[in-house]
Structure formats: structure tokens, C-alpha cells
Amino acid sequence: MLELRLIQGSLLKKVLEAIKDLVTEANFDCSATGFSLQAMDSSHVALVALLLRSEGFDHYRCDRNLSMGINLNNMSKMLRCAGPEDIITIKGDDGTDTVTFMFESQKQDKISDFEMKLMDIDSEHLGIPDAEYQAIVRMPSAEFARICKDLGSIGDTVVISVTKEGVKFFTRGDVGSANIVCRQNTSVDKPEDSTVIEMNEPVSLTFALRYMNSFTKATTLSEVVTISLSSELPVVVEYKIAEMGYIRFYLAPKIED
């Protein structure tokens, strides 16, 4: 028996919009810890890890660990039928091949049940090692989205370099090149507008902009994005989800052939 009630149902809608273009099918795992997902894109270049902690739900009942194979596009279609202010409850049962999404209006005067078919998905769960990153950049998520969009109109790849001067985003394409430097900036009233750079050592890595631009669909979930870089590792682009958890995107670098 599974029953997860989320007052701020819009969070779940936003999560689906953020990942459905990157990953088409995935297993949602439900345990005492929370509602989670780990999945790679079809080319195995990017990985998304989502966690919505059980404490963040208004009501969280998960009698035993349950994995639900879901077509994310279909789930997104159903969640789009929920109003922006609706409370969403996810209901499931062992041994059934469906999950139900219940939408309640805030005034409780409209209640909708959408039942969706589950599917069997063979997915490998990867171990993500704890890592010390050479550089961690925290910046406004909208600014990062703007940079990725702008550079994506010029080139296909972005070189992200962190030095003590700041974080540099560089691309080159047929029409020319572009270079954007963001300096550390903490002298603002709103901490979410700050750019903070923690650097242990300089690092420079190249990534496909197509994936970065896909990750920025999570911008509506958080005002701040955290980008963690190490030369031996995929970059981590993390959006915190209110008090509930996170969505983390891992992207394998382009490396010299």
C-alpha cells in the first residue's frame, strides 16, 4: 500500500516537466526515505537523480519498498490535468499494474482520479560515489539558464572553467565564439541572487550544451543552481526542491580523443 499526499502538487508537475524530455521511461522507487528516481538518458551521457523526502509530504505511507515503472511522458500528460494549486496524492498497491494520481482542489470541491498503467522497466541502478569536487559554483538558476540558452545559439559545446577570477562559459561555432564570465558576487541583499565560487583548484571541462539546456528545464524548481566540477568526474547540476529534496543532473564530459 502506497499513499503519498503532496500539498504543493505543483512541485511534482514541475519535476516531470524538468525530466520528461531527458528520460522517457524510469522506475520511481518508494521507500521509507522518500520518493526517488534514478535514470539515464538513452545515450547514457546524462543521469538524473531525484529525491523527494518522505518528511516533505503531508501524508506518506509506504508499507514496503515499491518500484513503479513509468512512462514519464504519460505521467506528465496526467499531471498536466492537475490545477496549479491542487493537492496531489499518489496511490498504489502491491501486485497491481496501475498507479492513481488524485487531484484535490484547495477548496476540496473538485476531486479527480487519474489511473495510469505501469510498465516493466529493466534499469540498472548506478552507484554514485561521494566526491570532493575541485570547484563548486552557486548561482541564480535563471542566470545559468540564460547563459546556456545564449551559448546554445552559437555553439554545440560549452567549456566551463573555474579560476580565482570567476566561472567562465565559452563556446565556439560557425558564426564565431562567445565568452561569458561570472565573478563571485555576494554583496547583494538577496542571497539567492549571489554567485558564490568555492574553488579548491582550477578546473576546466567541456560539455554538450544540448544536455545543459535540457537540465535548465528545472529552473522553476529553485532560484539557485549548484554546479560541481571535477576533472575526473561528470558535472553535477543540482536544483534543490524547497524543503523536500533535490533534482541532480549528472553529465559526462567531452574528453580529448
Binding site: L126, G127, P234, A252, P253
Partner: peptide, 14 residues
Amino acid sequence: VNKQSQITTFFTSP
């Protein structure tokens, strides 16, 4: 020329 690496090169099944 830069070649795209894969996530599975860095993270493996436990």
C-alpha cells in the same frame, strides 16, 4: 576533437 564520454564510464553498478 573532443569525444563524448558516457556516465557508465564513471559510475558503475554496485
